[in-house]
């Protein structure tokens, strides 16, 4: 009995960690700009593919350059970090193409939805053209030395899931610490809370905005690389599902709330782990049903701030 509970907790935490990572990616941009970057799911895919290429993986038969690969073979950890950085840079490019032109014109926020979705569509289809639609597995060196699974008091969990959970936790803690302690992190928070005051304090909010995009892309890239090592790269659409779940988690926790995104991710992961086998077909609906109910009871999410309506 206790084993089953522990197993469920472990399962839930492992998938919840990734949801939280994606939700944090949304949160960063949302808190500064007040809009949702729908290209995040595609950036998640990109992170997976870049990690694969950096580790020396080759493009297979259906891609644009069959047999081509980068002339490097980085070990997993540096490849993952470099891929996160590169995905962050790609996210800056998305900002430049999909967000900046609209910001300059002062367009309605609704338009950002469409342009960022367009950016995601372009990115996913470019990936498909370059890499083909087949699945890719990371080189076997990725997890060399790790056992297949770990035994935790009667529960079994794949060691890659433990790794995933550990990296997600580390990333979340690092991000929180950075936001609370560092000068630039506090500046970002200041812009998120009140742009006008931040400007009076001499904070370059344009730079903060770019920083938010960079970090959000890096988180998505990190998630993509981690998922890639766990379940391989099932195709360029892999990030879209995580993007959608992350969105549900984001709203569940409350838009723009960092603790909310983390709590929401874990809650969503656990709820999915608790679905009994007979009803597993309904699992995907469960996440959204919970979201639906939470929104009806707390229209601003679990940990969202109640805002004063402006007249």
């Amino acid at each position: 009995m206790i084993d089953a509970v522990l197993q469920t907790l472990l399962n839930g935490a492992a998938s919840g960690g990734v949801y939280a990572l994606v939700a944090l990616g949304y949160t960063l941009v949302f808190s500064v700009l007040g809009v949702i970057n729908f290209a995040l799911g595609a950036l998640f895919s990109l992170g997976g593919y870049v990690t694969y290429l950096l580790m020396g993986g080759r493009i297979s038969a259906n891609g644009a350059l069959p047999g081509w690969g980068l002339p490097l073979g980085l070990p997993f950890t540096p490849a993952l970090l470099l891929a996160a950085l590169l995905t962050g840079l790609a996210s800056l490019l998305v900002e430049r193409l999909a967000f900046a032109p609209l910001r300059r014109r002062g367009a309605e926020p609704l338009l950002y939805l469409i342009t960022s979705l367009g950016a995601g569509l372009v990115l996913v289809n470019l990936l498909q053209m370059l890499m083909g639609a087949e699945g890719y597995a990371f080189p076997a060196t990725a997890l060399a030395g790790l056992p297949d699974a770990l035994q935790v008091a009667g529960a079994r969990i794949r060691s890659v899931q433990v790794l995933l959970l550990a990296v997600c936790t580390a990333a979340v803690i690092a991000l929180t610490l950075w936001l609370e302690r560092s000068r630039s992190g506090r500046a970002l928070k200041a812009v998120a809370e009140d742009a006008t005051t931040a400007r009076l304090l001499g904070i370059d909010s344009e730079a903060m905005l770019r920083l938010a995009f960079l970090l959000s892309g890096a988180l998505a890239g990190l998630g993509g690389g981690l998922i890639g090592v766990s379940i391989s790269l099932p195709g360029p659409y892999m990030g879209i599902g995580y993007g959608l779940k992350g969105l549900a988690v984001l709203v569940l926790g409350g838009l723009g709330s960092v603790p909310g995104a983390i709590a929401g991710g874990l809650l969503m992961g656990l709820a999915e782990a608790l679905v009994p086998a007979d009803a597993s077909g309904w699992r995907d609906a469960l996440a959204f049903a919970i979201l639906f109910l939470v929104l009806l009871l707390r229209p601003r999410g679990l940990l969202g701030r109640r805002q004063v309506e402006k007249v």
């Binding site: 949302f30 808190s31 700009l33 007040g34 809009v35 609209l102 910001r103 300059r104 014109r105 002062g106 367009a107 926020p109 998120a192 009140d194 742009a195 400007r199 009076l200 304090l201 001499g202 904070i203 370059d204 909010s205 344009e206 905005l209 838009l255 723009g256 805002q307 004063v308 402006k310």
Partner: peptide
């Protein structure tokens, strides 16, 4: 403190705080 000079077409003109969502 003097406010930082604000380049035209920057966040300020188009800035939508979360409440505007």
């Amino acid at each position: 403190q003097r406010p930082a000079p604000w380049p035209a077409g920057s966040v300020a003109t188009a800035y939508h705080p979360p409440s505007l969502a």
